[in-house]
Nucleic acid binder design. Structure first.
Lengths: 139, 139
DNA sequence: GTTAATTATTTACCTGGGTAAATATCGGAG
DNA sequence: CTCCGATATTTACCCAGGTAAATAATTAAC
């Protein structure tokens, strides 16, 4: 069992995935990671920065940086919360208007990327991936 | 079929994989990406930079940068080839000495990471991943 | 043989992942 | 009330992926 080859393939596919998605998102002035954040906000509504990085399992400074870029490019706004330490992230009106169009691009690309595997294979893949990792899945 | 969830999981697992492997490689003064290059060189012998980036499916500037770091830290040496444009990358003697020890760390970590899936599941996972992507697999 | 296209590498600059340490604010112990 | 630990965010600095454009050297065309 060549586990190294498996990890190598895993890395390459994920890199390819985000590279190609970035290309498709270019026409919306957006990047893959930024899309992930927009999507979470559109589903869950306004969240503090900590809520977001914990949910996406990324470190806090990464979130600070990406949100700063997204604020500059007009996708989000950060308003003060009741607690003066935290900042609540909300989608701008322009973002809300543009979202359906972006969503269309994403869906189309995702379908292309899984074109050669069936729905049940997607399911299998998901469950196999879930089992990867050194940590227990229930934490 | 929530394809977005599949891609999200894929991203998270790969990020986790390289983050944790980086932690384990720290004691060897090495990073995941650098290990990948060392491994290729140990298997295939001296290669030009172009050989390496094409094999690893990475862009040329990424390779230039990482090799420069690896030369500074003493893992590799870049010697001129017959063609004055190209540089041939070779492992240093120290690198060859240290390799077996690094290999041990890698193998141990990899086994931990796949601990919850069987050999045949690893095989399934590999073949499912192979089918992902927008390009035909034969190019 | 000189010129033009191609090839190998590099430089400059972007996004995005990480860690360590600095602020700033909040909350609880005393 | 004061001080001290915890929490939210930021800053500074890594590594690693990308693109566009600049060199440098080789090859092909004429």
């Amino acid at each position: 069992m060549d586990t190294s080859a498996l990890f190598h393939l895993l890395n390459q596919k994920v890199r390819l995935l985000s590279k190609e998605l970035n290309e498709h998102l270019q026409k919306h002035d957006l990047y893959t990671s930024q899309w992930t954040i927009l999507y979470v906000l559109s589903q869950k509504g306004p969240m503090s920065q900590t809520d977001i990085w914990q949910y996406l399992k990324v470190e806090a400074p990464t979130m600070t940086r990406t949100l700063a870029r997204m604020e500059t490019s007009g996708w989000i706004h950060r308003k003060p919360g009741k607690d003066k330490r935290e900042r609540i992230v909300v989608l701008t009106e322009e973002a809300k208007e543009k979202l359906p169009d972006v969503m269309k691009t994403i869906k189309q690309f995702e379908q292309q990327f899984v074109a050669h595997i069936s729905n049940s294979e997607q399911d299998q893949l998901y469950h196999l991936l879930e089992k990867l990792g050194t940590k227990r899945s229930d934490e």
